[in-house]
Design a protein around this nucleic acid. Structure first.
Lengths: 342, 342
DNA sequence: TTGAAAGCGTTACCAA
DNA sequence: TTGGTAACGCTTTCAA
């Protein structure tokens, strides 16, 4: 049997709380002399004492675990640069603070409150929220701090959100294409991201931006791995520029264009979103909106940690923070002047 | 205050364990009538009873959390296809079984036993093990099931390992290059993977394979993001084929070659490792060793779950499993005949 | 300054 | 079939 704190206390001839104080820094009004502290540490080592983390979690109602929830996690593909960036940001915030990252399949709703708000996590980072399945309301007062990443402002009242400034981003893309002479453009998005709050928001941002320039525009919902561009082979193509929801999706477009012999950017311009290093590897190199994913994830996580560590009243009353991240356009080689005949 | 199981029991006029039985299926020799079960469920709903997961973890000494440990997690880059594949495999095994995935910064050694073997995880998946920092011995009897992913056979006696068959893989690569006429080849690896058990093993496998064909060979330890290929511009280049440790590293080589105007595969052949979809996106498309990362991760995780759920004596005595995965070579466009003058 | 005792929420054990 | 009681390991509170 494993040694408990009491075994150590007995062997050292002190009380259990003295041990707790020395080994975990927990006792409040306890003072232990240096000599005794040394003795306790020595005995603990000899007995191979190992604190029972579950007991501590239980007693303290604190796990030092932060839950990261993706919806549609099944959609992770091995060429999606988003995930590593995001996880790096989360870990960069969590690990130095002594927290571990727990990844959940989904928000397991039980009745109308999330089952994961049962104490197993000190806080929840809800990434790529999908409002079709889960009730935001059930989160707001579930008793566990929640922060949303990639949730547009206002989409979850009372819950802090961290999101790209899609409006500004799409305006920049549209302006860039407009300046190159493009007048017929489309936004290309996979059905899966279209289920997320940000997918919807980015699409709407595109539509507003396109309208502001009086463009012919369209939204194409298309499988990102197998987009069909055959319509673009004819001389009067439906659009001269495609704006993809993500770099991955843009990569699929480039591949499809290549397969059909469509010249990018000669015949067709393509824009991605995220401006990951992926964009440097494509041929032609991909023009893309830069979104500081890692920083956003780090900021969201750090904010979540403040919520975890401050009294609930503090953050509850201060109102939900909304952070919008400016996204610039990295112009590379996949966008060019509108082809003459169009 | 949140309702406890006792509150529910009292309100329903039954014992706490009857509630436990009905709501958690836990009571052993308890039988509750259907009517009473219905009443209990009703009362629980009315009181918004939510089981305290920490209390249950504590009582059961079971968290339904599996720890995934990477060493050198700082090295995750946003174009590394490895991580999503691996996580998909782990999640595919964990989630249906009702487990959550916890990701740890490192093996936090405390004394000579890992601090994470303190009950917070039911099992540990140790990925990319690094024997320079942690003692394998400390793991073997730490009381928590441990499985290693990407640990060569024999590198951790007593701990089940799941690993690519590096010897066979490297032999296939070398044979392929030999058949194309290459006689001067190099293995290119970043300093970071060279710290891992598999980095060392793969390098050794390369050396054995090259020797078996009497090749001129060399190992180049090179930063994967900024490899220097200037030596390859001269007509008598040091090698005519480079075998990279990973697809990412091969991608760096392709980029460096392009920057210097070195033709791949005309002047130089390049081989990657993993054969991820990344290989389809490069120009030229990358010849690469296919390693079934997702399946390996899934198998390792499933095996870990059996260790978690069976009595320790079962798996302790059956001896450690070692799974070697056959890796075929996906020949694409980045390898070609040895240039004439060499 | 130290120690004893109570209690966190749950579930197993044992008695009725 | 049912229910009371004790115990899991730790930390806080209160008393000495």
């Amino acid at each position: 049997m494993r040694a408990t704190i009491r075994d150590v206390a007995e062997a050292a001839g002190v009380s259990a709380m003295a041990v707790s104080k020395v080994l975990h820094g927990k006792g409040t009004n306890v003072r232990v002399s240096d000599a005794k502290a040394e003795l306790i540490r020595k005995v603990a080592r000899e007995l191979h004492y190992r604190p029972n983390q579950n007991a501590r979690n239980f007693r303290n109602q604190k796990t030092n675990l932060i839950g990261v929830v993706f919806q549609h996690f099944e959609g992770l593909t091995d060429d999606n640069p988003y995930l590593p960036q995001m996880l790096n940001g989360v870990m960069a915030a969590l690990f130095p603070a002594g927290y571990t990252m727990g990844i959940c399949p989904s928000l397991i709703l039980d009745g109308n409150a999330p089952a994961i708000a049962d104490g197993r996590f000190d806080g929840i980072l809800w990434a790529r929220p999908d409002f079709s399945a889960a009730s935001v309301d059930s989160f707001r007062y579930c008793g566990v701090p929640v922060v949303m990443l990639h949730a547009p402002t206002g989409s979850a009242e009372g819950i802090p959100t961290f999101c790209a400034n899609n409006d500004l981003a799409m305006q920049r893309v549209v302006d860039h294409l407009y300046d190159l002479g493009h007048r017929k453009v489309a936004f290309v998005i996979d059905p899966v991201p279209l289920l997320t709050a940000e997918g919807v928001a980015r699409r709407a941002a595109f539509e507003r931006a396109a309208q502001s320039r009086n463009l012919d525009f369209e939204v194409l919902v298309v499988d990102q791995t197998e987009p069909d561009l055959t319509a673009y082979k004819s001389s009067n193509r439906p659009h001269t520029a495609l704006i993809a929801y993500s770099d991955t999706q843009a990569g699929g477009l480039l591949k499809a264009a290549e397969a059909l012999g469509i010249d990018v950017p000669g015949e067709l311009s393509v824009v991605g979103f995220d401006s990951s290093t992926f964009c440097e590897r494509t041929k032609p190199r991909l023009t893309s909106v830069f979104q500081p994913v890692e920083q956003m994830a780090r900021d969201a996580t750090n904010y979540l940690l403040t919520m975890v560590n401050d009294a609930e009243s503090t953050w509850r009353e201060s109102g939900a923070v909304t952070s919008l991240y400016d996204c610039h356009l990295d112009v590379r080689e996949s966008t060019g002047p509108c082809p003459p005949s169009n």
